[in-house]
Design a protein around this nucleic acid. Structure first.
Lengths: 156, 156
DNA sequence: CCATATATGATGAATATTCATCGTTTATAG
DNA sequence: CTATAAACGATGAATATTCATCATATATGG
């Protein structure tokens, strides 16, 4: 990465490669992006320092650990006050089965994705956990029949 | 992991730790989960062989690379025939800006998440790319105002 | 065009990781 | 309770990674 903070073609290739497979050695990465391993290493450090390249994570197959069902749920809030929103977002943060949460434009206030074992498991979550939250006025749940694509890679 | 394929408490701790931070050394991991590094290593290999523990990926900050806007889009298909579905799913697979796709129950056929730079960028995607697909009968787009939670970690 | 700043590739030493081996402990079954 | 199978921790050698150093090459601005 150039010191002005702009990423160039080589940076882009490094980011793409590491988004796809972070277990690549610097040696292999270097060959793949057309630079020396020393240069790759320096660029990676710079991209980390700039906050562009963040965490390294290992993925787990949801179905194999009993979390094969995805539910997308639209939520309407009882109030739009700052405190109500903060309370809800804090609640979401603390619930590990909620893996994504978007604050939305339009008729619903939030869209969340929940990973559960089955319909019964979701029923429990909805009735006991989500609808029990004081900020939540209503929710519309939509079950995913299957997940046909899931990637953590941002296009570059 | 026991040879019968069940994961135990130590496996769960290993998976949780690696989902949060795959850059942990086996030494640190061993201390954290309360086992020897040799045992951790054997368990990781077994979890990989079983397909429970999958890829290692590096995450990139979307906003820093000009993909700070999330759009959730419901899609209705022109036909539900196998070929139409396969064609659409193949199309989704080839579009890097579509990062997630769920086949849905209910009134819409698919829900996709798209990462774009801005509204104009999305307009181009919608008009030229998505609505141009022969399988797509209609779409309802919803812009995320913000992403308040995003995790790749499946609860264990 | 030249002077300066910045990025590069090569090198190598210190450190960390991978993985096989071995003797010991723990779980399971008869 | 004992026999067997399985998982365990310790060890260490082969290999790979990390990161500093230095000389060279490439941009940038006056």
């Amino acid at each position: 990465m150039k010191q002005d903070g702009q990423i160039d073609e080589v940076d882009r290739r490094i980011l793409s490669a590491l988004q796809a497979d972070a277990s690549l050695s610097h040696q292999d990465l270097a060959e793949r992006v057309g630079a020396s391993s020393a240069s790759c290493w320096r660029r990676i450090k710079a991209l980390e320092a700039a906050g562009i390249l963040t965490r390294t994570v290992r993925l787990v197959d949801p179905a194999q650990v009993g979390r094969g069902v995805n539910v997308l749920c639209n939520i309407r809030m009882r109030s739009h006050a700052r405190e109500a929103r903060a309370a809800f977002e804090h609640f979401v943060d603390g619930r590990p089965e909620i893996v994504e949460c978007f604050s939305m434009s339009g008729e619903w206030d939030y869209l969340i994705r929940i990973v559960v074992a089955d319909v019964e498991d979701y029923n429990r979550f909805l009735m006991q956990t989500l609808l029990g939250h004081p900020s939540v006025a209503g929710a519309a749940s939509h079950f995913a029949l299957s997940m046909t694509k899931y990637t953590t890679a941002i296009p570059l």
